[in-house]
Simulated scan of single mutants.
Amino acid sequence: MHWKFSEEQDAYRETLRGWLGDVAGSDQVRAWLGLDPAGPGRPAADPTEFEDRWVADGLCGVGFPEELGGQGGGVVELAITAEELARVAAPSAAWLATTLAMPALETRPDLAKAALEGSHAAVAIAAESLPAAPGHVTADADGALTGVVPRVLGADRAGLLVVPAGGASGPRLYAVDTAQPGVEITPRRLLDRSRSVADVRLSGVVGQPLDVDAATVLSATTDLAGVLLGADALGAMERMLELAVDYSAQRQQFGVPIGSFQAVKHAAATILVDVEAGRSGLYYAAASVAERHAESSLHSAAVKAQVTAAAGRAADSALTMHGAIGYTWEHDLHLFFKRARLDEQLFGSVEDWNERISSGLTLA
């Protein structure tokens, strides 16, 4: 099946790709990520300039309804955004974390608008865990939140945390201002510098209860995470294929380009098949999640598991096709290699998402 975008979606994709081409060239991305072209970078990554430009140009609101401060569109547009951001290895922790927090903020337009206008938000869930299964924070009878959540995606970029917390009346979601007393954010460095995580410590912090069903929202957040991480992996995989094909046409062995060797052709063809198959499945899943199809959770889990696994295989193949230069920091391949590898593990491993599929299937 070949997925076909609407005219509006094609126009958005073209516009976004052009914008990123103007704003997020390789040298600029490396500067934001704190990378020295001559070797491993010493400075900490600082994506603030990119995030500010992203918000100022209205791109943070694409995919969200106008009543929440968005520009319209839905999950398909969000998937397009994730894919295009990954194609240039642009910093995306703030955007992705804010996007995943939005289902919890649907009843609080004030908080949603503030997040989309640059304060950013993050869901206080460990980066390696499925959003549907948090469990690090507890709320006492007065609603004071206590606990430590390790490795929260984008917490270092966020002015607002959506905190799932267990209590006597069951799990609830709370909105917490990161600037208030009792909130401690400790950034951690990842190998993939295009994303960031931080440990979150809450010490008796009083949050604002959100008037939503926690289980329903976290399930929706999980479905959205599966689609967007699949899209991110797809974008990284597509770019790794382009880099590998370009390099195989330039590098010569035995007097001929290595791209003429059958093994190299087969490796590139395998990645291409995975890219095209992944794209069709991914955007079907995005539409399914947008329409809240009865099996949307299965569709989302399938693309998270399959597309991120395919991107991991593509990363290895692209590295092999590049040979020694693929291991160096001076070549851009490592940006996409690390991005694809993180997508495999972010919000749950391939095995975790396959388990989500098997748990959702009804056996005859």
Rank of each mutant, 00 (worst) to 15 (best):
L105S: 09
K113A: 12
L96V: 10
D110G: 02
E83T: 09
G69C: 05
L116E: 00
G72D: 04
I80Q: 05
S92P: 00
A94G: 10
L100T: 13
A97W: 11
I80D: 09
T107L: 07
W95Q: 06
W95H: 05
R87G: 14
P109Y: 02
A112K: 00
G73A: 09
R87T: 08
E66Y: 02
L111K: 03
L59K: 04
V76F: 07
L85E: 00
P109A: 04
E106C: 07
G70A: 10
F64V: 03
V75W: 04
L116C: 03
A89K: 02
A89D: 05
L105E: 02
K113T: 12
L105G: 04
L100Y: 13
E66A: 15
K113C: 01
C60D: 14
L111S: 00
E106Y: 05
P91K: 14
A79G: 08
P103L: 11
V62K: 05
L105V: 13
P65R: 07
E84P: 01
G61I: 05
L100R: 14
E84V: 09
T98Q: 07
E84T: 01
L85A: 03
K113V: 05
L100C: 11
V88E: 02
P109V: 04
Q71K: 15
L96Y: 06
P109T: 01
V88N: 02
E66W: 07
W95L: 08
P103K: 13
G63T: 11
A79V: 08
W95G: 04
L105W: 08
T99R: 15
A115V: 02
L68V: 06
A86K: 00
A115W: 01
V76C: 09
K113N: 04
L68G: 01
A104V: 05
I80T: 13
P65N: 07
G73Q: 00
A89R: 01
G63H: 08
P91L: 15
G58R: 08
E77Q: 15
A104Y: 08
G72C: 08
W95T: 05
V88I: 07
A90Q: 14
W95R: 09
A114C: 01
A94T: 12
L59V: 09
A112C: 06
A89H: 06
G70K: 02
P91Y: 15
G72F: 03
L78S: 03
E66T: 13
L100H: 13
A104G: 12
G74E: 07
G72K: 06
A97P: 10
L78C: 03
A89S: 15
R87A: 14
G73H: 06
G74Q: 01
L85Q: 03
G63Q: 06
E84Q: 13
P65E: 10
P109C: 08
M102K: 09
S92I: 10
T99W: 02
V75E: 08
Q71N: 04
P103H: 13
R108P: 01
T99N: 06
A97M: 10
P103Y: 15
V76Y: 00
G69K: 00
T99E: 08
